[in-house]
């Protein structure tokens, strides 16, 4: 693969980028901070069997005006990418979001509007060259309107909806779209939150994701138990959802 990874410097994105590097895939990193990108690029170079160079460009999901230029740079560095992975996004607790409308606006814009815009740029380029792989991290939080993730979950619900439609529309044209729905994963983003049952590790998530990418699956719950958990939650009647805190 020749993969662009947006958000590959930390958390699950870092783990996925490492798995790809260790397979020998060529990688182009994107993220917000040039210094952090340089450190992660060095890490990936050391993990690649042939020490291949990993290039990078600054790309901030809060600055959509930079998306096209960053993807141009990735194209140049990789000689045309065939895979795009988006793990970047924002997270904040429901309490923090309810207390700060500006934070809510930013989160909704980053997680939904700008992620979709970035995917549109990537999707067009992939289709122009006959297809490819687009993997985007959404969340189980988007599967059902729930009290503890009302605002964050709504941003991911919109994103999941978009990714499903992309798959329906472009699968036949060679674009493989994978919507990843991680449950709670122990990363820097969730540090300090009490891990619920079935909390996952980034390395295990990355293993599942790469396997699903290779198999060109459209949807992945990870850890796998979350598929069952969310199935139950999706079928819970509204009067039950009103009563429980989950």
């Amino acid at each position: 693969m020749k993969a662009v990874v947006l958000g590959g410097t930390g958390g699950m994105g870092r783990a996925v980028a490492r798995k790809l590097a260790e397979r020998g895939d060529e990688i182009f990193l994107m993220g917000r901070d040039a210094g952090d990108l340089a450190r992660s690029a060095a890490d990936l170079e050391a993990r690649q069997p042939k020490n291949a160079r990993v290039a990078y460009a600054v790309c901030d999901l809060e600055k959509p005006e930079g998306f096209a230029a960053a993807l141009d740079e990735a194209d140049r560095a990789l000689g045309g990418f065939d895979t795009v992975v988006v793990t970047a996004g924002m997270f904040a607790t429901q309490e923090a979001l309810e207390a700060d409308v500006e934070l809510t606006r930013r989160l909704l814009t980053v997680n939904y509007t700008n992620t979709v815009v970035f995917c549109e740029h990537a999707r067009k380029r992939l289709l122009e060259r006959g297809g490819g792989q687009l993997t985007v991290f959404s969340s189980v939080a988007g599967d059902r309107g729930r009290k503890p993730v009302a605002l964050y979950g709504s941003s991911k619900a919109g994103l999941s909806h978009y990714l499903e439609a992309l798959d329906h529309k472009f699968h036949a044209k060679g674009l493989s779209v994978l919507c990843v729905k991680p449950g709670f994963v122990k990363t820097g983003m969730t540090a300090g939150l009490k891990p619920p049952p079935f909390a996952g590790e980034p390395d295990d998530v990355a293993k599942h994701v790469v396997r699903a990418m290779v198999a060109r699956k459209p949807l992945l719950y990870t850890p796998a138990i979350w598929a069952l958990v969310m199935l139950v939650i999706r079928w819970l009647p509204r009067f039950v959802m009103r009563r429980i805190g989950f």
């Binding site: 450190r39 992660s40 060095a42 890490d43 170079e45 050391a46 993990r47 020490n51 990363t187 820097g188 540090a191």
Partner: peptide, 16 residues
């Protein structure tokens, strides 16, 4: 534990 990146590796000398 989460700050775990390799920042440089020289395969000729083994310096990490």
């Amino acid at each position: 534990r989460l700050a775990n990146r390799i920042l440089a590796f020289d395969a000729r000398t083994g310096v990490v």
